[in-house]
Nucleic acid binder design. Sequence first.
RNA 1: GCCGGAGUGGUGGAAUGGUAUACACGCAGCGCUUAAAACGCUGUGAGCUUCAUCGCUCAUGAGGGUUCGAUCCCCUCCUCCGGCACCA
Length: 943
Amino acid sequence: MKSYDHKKIEKKWQKEWAKKKIYRSKEKGKKTYILDMFPYPSGEGLHVGHPKGYIATDIFSRHARMNGKSVLHPMGWDAFGLPAENYAIKNKVHPRVAVEKNVKRFKEQLKLIGLDYDWNREINTTDPEFYKWTQWIFLKLFDMGLAYQSFEPINWCPSCQTGLANEDLEGNACERCGTIVEKRPMRQWVLKITDYAERLLQDLELLPEWQTHIKESQRNWIGKSEGAMIRFRVPGSGDQEIEVFTTRPDTLFGATYMVLSPEYSGMKELLERATNKDEVHEYIVKAGKKTEIERQENKEKTGVKLEGVEAINPATGEKVPLYVADYVLAHYGTGAIMAVPAHDERDWEFAKKFNIAVKQVVSHVVHNTEGAYAVRPREPFKYRDAVMCIVKHWEKNEYLCQEWTDYSGIRTLISGGIEDGEDVVATGKREIEEESGYTNAKFVRHIGGFSFIEFYHQRKETNMRARFRYLYYELENGEQKPIPEAEAAQHVNVWKKPDEVVDFLTISEKERVWEVFNGKEEIFTGNGYLVNSSKYDGLTTEEAKEKIIEKFGTKKTTYKIRDWVFSRQRYWGEPIPIIHCPKCGVVPVPEKDLPVRLPDVKKYEPTGTGESPLAAITKWVNVKCPKCKGKAKRETNTMPQWAGSSWYYLRYMDPKNKKAPVDKKKEKYWAPVDLYVGGAEHATRHLIYARFWHKFLQDIGAVSTPEPFTRLISVGLIQAEDGRKMSKRFGNVINPDDIIATYGADTLRVYEMFMGPFSDAIAWNTSSLIGARRFIERAWRLQEKIVAKTDEAVERELHKTIKKIGEDIGNFKFNTAISQMMIFVNLAEEKGITKKQYQAFIAILAPFAPHVSEELWKEFGGKGFVHVSMWPKFDAKKLVANTMNIVVQINGKVRAQVLFDANADEATIRIETEKAAEKWLQGKEIRKFIYVKGRLANFVIDK
RNA sequence: GCCGGAGUGGUGGAAUGGUAUACACGCAGCGCUUAAAACGCUGUGAGCUUCAUCGCUCAUGAGGGUUCGAUCCCCUCCUCCGGCACCA
């Protein structure tokens, strides 16, 4: 036996594969498109975390190829953008030179791992032949009115000296450098992604194979809310109106004031009429100076009242005050709100601080679903008004409770229905007297508002929907009338200390009543029944929303997602293909003039003036207007880093096409991407941008599918051995080159896949790595164990392994796949293996450890390359053993095991297992016998 | 605060209603060796019992429930990670 020399083997086969071009993709047969998120080639090179996803897709695509699929598995470079430029500035090299150097280094590193990329299709976003088509897509967006210039204030990073999109922020800091961003008004190009918000949201339904957390992030980011637009009239001179957006039109009757954001568009006119104009103006100026962080950090509500101006609540007809406060955002909805302090937390805080009236219009509902009082479905409700009384002892700090003596076991407070026309407070007093005999209860106060309880009324044999009001009484003395016998028979009165009350009560409302009683101010933001809302009283939140919109407003849907700020005031990006002409205005560069090349310059530092460094290159900037041929200037802003990555996956299908971004036939063949693997950090940016562009390209007929990526799996981070992020800064980086030199690429691959579940973050552990190496060496040494005939258990385990590996690769469960191969190797080592079995094993090992497998295949396998040969077929018949081990349980506890012939019937098994369990069954009656076929026999006995 | 995901030996993890702790690392003992490395063999959740076996009890973040049987399903709570966050 030759000794296992990974260096020799790996070098040899990498060369051979490249020479024979076995990984070239062709449009023939059943296709599968497997894609990695292409890397940004940084100056630091790869660390061991980077290739984890690439190894997984490599295994996946090798498996597909061995099963006869036509595989597209390409790689390229996302090389434009701030980091490349900042690196270049810092190291005083041109970004183009730096990128070239970094790409070369990355590619060398990737090749060492033995990945099966079709390098013939390599792309680079900074290649003019590539970005020509990025510019082309921009022009199409412009033609369709989806790219426009805006002068609204945007996020400006003072350190990177460029504008940023909302997606580029982490909180209020630049995602790149951590600097707090400013709001800065400037001219910029914006893409109308909001036009696609609904489709981006809806079509998540088309993606059952995306992980839920990614879809959830996208939903969050799109931030759809459905509600209504409602106009409030401002009486007085003119016919001014304030329109608001609300998701809770059902609470309109509870809108007791309105709030305008400091930047509210109609502020000027309102300000004219305010009697405290200066004060309000001062607040607005102050709020404008506040940075986003100050607004964020200090959530204490501030604001100022607009004196002398009022609006009219269209539902109640009542006048409500107006406030200006910065807790209302200018850019969401209309920049003004109706405030409902009883049912909105923020409004509640503000109202409390400014002493504004709070009016309950939705009541809490308790719907009993358990026990004798459970609401009976599909039966109608009877309605009644009722009171519930908290009654305090005349001397002690104790409260009156009742325990029902019927079977229900209900423990409650004194309660009862309000008779027609009866006063609420009087009702409480009457009920106290009737049920407890105490005659001197003094009403103290109301507790909270209305609350509904739904239950089944035993005596009346009907569902009840009772609208309760809670009242608090104190007994002045112990004077008591006798209680009528009928009443006394129903319940016992007991006194409970304050801390015992909640535990004693069984009614479902107990905690709430008691908490509200004890001063915990509760606002209710949930759904319920309407109260204090005139004819809408009694409607559910949902019903009321519809009815109130119908009468007082219009339906409206809003989204949190903002249009995509698409220009950067930096050098290293795709030039935006636009020409500004003093006569013709904004003129797109004609398609035939693409690409607009990034000029080669010596100086590319940002100017910081809001102008791109390109503006200083007069030779490049000054052009003829394509329309009037007069003097004109080029657009000097560049595109953000995310531009190229929004469509690159299409280019791999046809990377050298000079006439179109991608040929339609080729697109039809390869699209969509069947499997997309990459970092979860791209959940809201790259993936939302790419989906947006894809949908646009579908609309203009350039692509044929609604979604670009059918299945998406995020790769879990590999942390450093110290559990931190792997970074040059911490000095804890592990370089794959070193690992490959010492242990080999095959070991690295197997180890990274064996570490744990693919999408989990796990810390690197070099000492565990040795296990992967040992496994490969044992697989290698198995050649010494080749025998003519071996134990049938080996053949059975082989087929089990073939089956499991195939399934596990499909499910991205590489860790369990490898453990199954280890189990097989351990067994084969012990029992010996036939040559045929060894060949099959080499084939299933091949996707994981391609080099060693190819070497073994050459020696012990068939012709050609193992990676293009057929994946072994598993035979279900061979999985069946001729014996089975039945576990004997007593009440679910394992007590014994019995070996049976595979075709033993249940009756035999019962007899034999009962014998085996005799010890435990003696003198007991077997109440039940449960047999799970081929697995266990369980005897249920009395304990 | 809201939404999503997770919590299992010394460590990474396996098992999605049926023998919890597969597989691997580490550790301990033994073998091979002049020695070491490598490799091989044996053992390895905690506890009780026993001369030793056999055997028993407990343990999957905590508590409760459903079930013949729960790491897995349901309820309550705790902790950690990720996303969003004054979005009306």
